[in-house]
Every structure is written in C-alpha cells, then in structure tokens.
Design a protein around this nucleic acid. Structure first.
Length: 140
DNA sequence: GCCAACGTTGGC
DNA sequence: GCCAACGTTGGC
C-alpha cells in the first residue's frame, strides 16, 4: 500500500533527507496512535509521498520508500519508527491547490479540513495521479 | 498572526 | 465515563 507522510520542513525537509547518510532517516517522534498503527503497517519497499506542511506552498515534494519496517523507538518503546529513504525529489512541488483540483484525489485524507494525521494510507490510483502531476501531466 | 479542528488531559 | 480546558497542527 502506498502512503503519505507529512513533515514541517522547518523541522525536517526533503532536502534534509537528501543530505542524510544514505539518504535515509529514522521516521520517529510520531505520538498519535492512529499514525503509529499506520507506521506499523508499512512494508519494506513501499512508496511514500513526502508532504511539506506549513510551507509555501504546502504540498507533495517527492517520493520516499520504506527502507526498514517498524521497530520500537529506542528511548520510548511504546512508540514505533520506520526508516525512510529518498527516492526522488520532484522538480516542482505538487501544491495542495493542485491536489484539490483533482477529482480523483478528493478522498485524500490530507485534504480533509482539520486533518492532522502525519501518516496516512493512499491508494495506488492516488499515488499514480500525484506522480503524473509531478511530471507535468494535466490530463484526465 | 489568526483561528478552526483535533487529540489529550484531568476534575468530577 | 463525561466533558471542559488546554496545547498543537496546519492552512490561510
């Protein structure tokens, strides 16, 4: 299953990931039970959209993948982390406006008002559509 | 900077 | 177990 993770770029941006060792980071600090359960459902190799919140503009900035499935956080093993590895940084952000402009993306949890989940599942079709938008295709 | 939406906390 | 208060998130 494909996924989407949110990050405030002031805290951790896709450029930070690009600079990280092996372009891989431990995705820890999630302190929401539903998001944690999603983390635990991630499988190695699955693709994950990387979303910048509180950015100008907010939107999807690239694709990462699950490099290591969920493991307990060393300092707080009630919670889980995964390792995420950079796959690609988009040439252009797929902005939240662009996402909202797509009927096929209307069900994205991220677009719901007040949605604060930092890890959400998406469908294969949604992943495909966002990748098309990233590559500049506007078609159906 | 504002504020609506949400999750968590804590008194009862 | 309810719910008001509070802190945080995130778009604008």
């Amino acid at each position: 299953m494909p996924w989407l993770v949110k990050s405030d770029p002031e805290t951790f941006s896709i450029d930070d990931l690009a600079k990280a060792k092996n372009k891989t980071t431990s995705w820890d600090g999630v302190r929401n039970y539903q998001a944690r359960n999603y983390l635990r459902a991630m499988k190695k190799g699955e693709r994950v959209l990387f979303y910048h919140s509180n950015a100008e503009p907010p939107g999807v900035v690239g694709v990462v993948k699950v490099a290591r499935e969920a493991y307990p956080e060393p300092k707080d093993d009630e919670w889980s982390a995964v390792d995420l590895e950079l796959v690609e940084k988009f040439a252009h952000t797929v902005s939240i406006d662009a996402l909202r402009g797509q009927k096929s993306l209307a069900d994205l949890m991220i677009l719901r008002k007040g949605s604060r989940l930092s890890v959400t599942p998406i469908t294969d079709a949604e992943m495909k559509r966002v990748l098309e938008l990233a590559r500049g295709k506007s078609g159906a």
